[in-house]
Amino acid sequence: MSEHAEHAGDETNYVKIWATLLCLLIVSILGPFLGIKIVTLIAAFGIAIVKAYLVAKYFMHLNVEPRYAVYLLTTMLVLVLLFFAGTAPDVMKHEGTNWVKPVVHVETHAPAQH
């Protein structure tokens, strides 16, 4: 059995973290109703990062796991960021020096009629 689990906290702490996660969920749902873009972004993605951090730290016990696991997961996140940095400019820019991206498809805004 895992020797680090005994350092991870008792049931009450887990329930408190779960309650915190639910409060954050409610804020992330209600925040966008204000209709302010920056609030929506913070409510949606800022809170998602906080929720993921809480789950990883306290439920997955990364706070007491050997650093090896943290380094392993961080390396994978860096690889994803590298992928994003390498491909995003090509996807997100529609034109550049001496090139214009051809239109390859047409978005359909209305559902198909059945």
Binding site: L73, M76, L77, L79, V80, L81, F83, T87, A88, V91
Partner: peptide
């Protein structure tokens, strides 16, 4: 992480 990360990044 790489599988879902790649998908979400795309």
């Amino acid at each position: 992480i790489v599988i879902f990360g790649g998908l979400l990044a795309s």
